[in-house]
């Protein structure tokens, strides 16, 4: 079994094709839209992620050393007078918030570099990280342009002091030292919804599965769903903003209205579309 499968997979790797064609057309491809005009930077998504995904609290000293384990982080940028921005005495147009989580790239730079295939692409378009296969070479994190892969530099399972550990979500692992981890689009929820749908001989309905960040978001800035389903909220939002896999802003010269993908020029084909923040500069 092993060798034949390896050869089969090898030929699959080598087959050239359109973006996203690495797998046969699958009935699901999970995608997201984050509306930066609605995002208020409140960090509810971050806390929800901690609660859902068993993320450890590392403490001040380790946070200072850059060991925080937040699968989704809120980046806040000021206007500092770059790229044609006007630098003002005060930050007059507010702060620029960017929720940064794994972009579940269709051409993920992290995937080909893992020596043991602990990170790979699932048929439904997720960028998977298998903890029990990971040996901790950390190449994937180096190669991630979004820097959304976090490494367990220490064992954190004892940081949940009794009885805090009773809160842990039993649907996914608590990671020990030496493995990489990252946002999974709440795969445990996706898998549960898919199982439910399969039991009932149907497809997963739009809105049936929500990521933890999406569900918590006070402004519903995050829309998540199946991009293969043309009626899903997320697919509609991709369509309205003329966003699609393979879209390349530089090549096409024209930008779809409001929709963009972060660091798109690297051709990583992220599955997360951001909608531009809007500011009324006339007042």
């Amino acid at each position: 079994m092993g060798i034949e499968r390896m050869i089969k997979q090898w030929f699959e790797f080598r087959r050239s094709g359109q973006v996203g064609d690495e797998y046969h057309r699958h009935e699901y491809r999970w995608g997201m839209t984050i509306d930066l005009d609605k995002c208020i930077g409140c960090n509810a998504c971050v806390t929800a992620c901690y609660a859902e995904n068993n993320l450890p609290v590392v403490g001040k000293e380790r946070f200072a050393r850059g060991l925080a384990m937040h699968w989704i982080r809120l980046e806040r940028y000021w206007y500092t007078g770059e790229a044609g921005e006007k630098k003002t005495r005060f930050s007059e147009r507010g702060a620029q918030y960017l929720p940064m989580l794994c972009q579940q790239c269709e051409h993920a730079p992290c995937e080909p570099v893992c020596p043991v295939t602990a990170t790979y692409h699932t048929p439904d378009g997720l960028n998977a990280q298998v903890y029990n296969r990971c040996i901790g070479s950390r190449y994937c994190s180096n190669n991630c342009p979004y820097k959304v892969r976090y490494f367990n530099f220490y064992s954190y399972y004892d940081t949940w002091q009794t009885p805090l550990e009773q809160q842990l979500n039993p649907d996914l692992s608590v990671r020990d030292k030496g493995v990489m981890e990252k946002c999974t689009f709440c795969v445990q929820r996706i898998r549960a919804a898919k199982n439910r749908a399969k039991n009932e001989n149907r497809k997963v309905r739009d809105g049936e599965v929500m990521t933890a960040c999406q569900q918590a978001c006070p402004t519903r800035a995050i829309v998540f769903g199946n991009l293969e389903d043309p009626d899903s909220q997320v697919a509609r939002s991709w369509k309205v903003h003329k966003m699609a896999f393979g879209h390349n802003e530089k090549k096409e010269g024209k930008k779809p209205v409001r929709g963009y993908r972060v660091l798109e020029e690297l051709n990583t084909e992220p599955s997360i579309q951001y909608l531009e923040r809007v500011r009324d500069t006339d007042v």
């Binding site: 048929p123 998977a128 298998v130 029990n132 296969r133 692992s173 999974t184 795969v187 445990q188 898998r191």
Partner: peptide, 8 residues
């Protein structure tokens, strides 16, 4: 046969 089906 997806790893993530069983390992999460």
């Amino acid at each position: 046969s997806d790893c993530w089906e069983c390992h999460k």
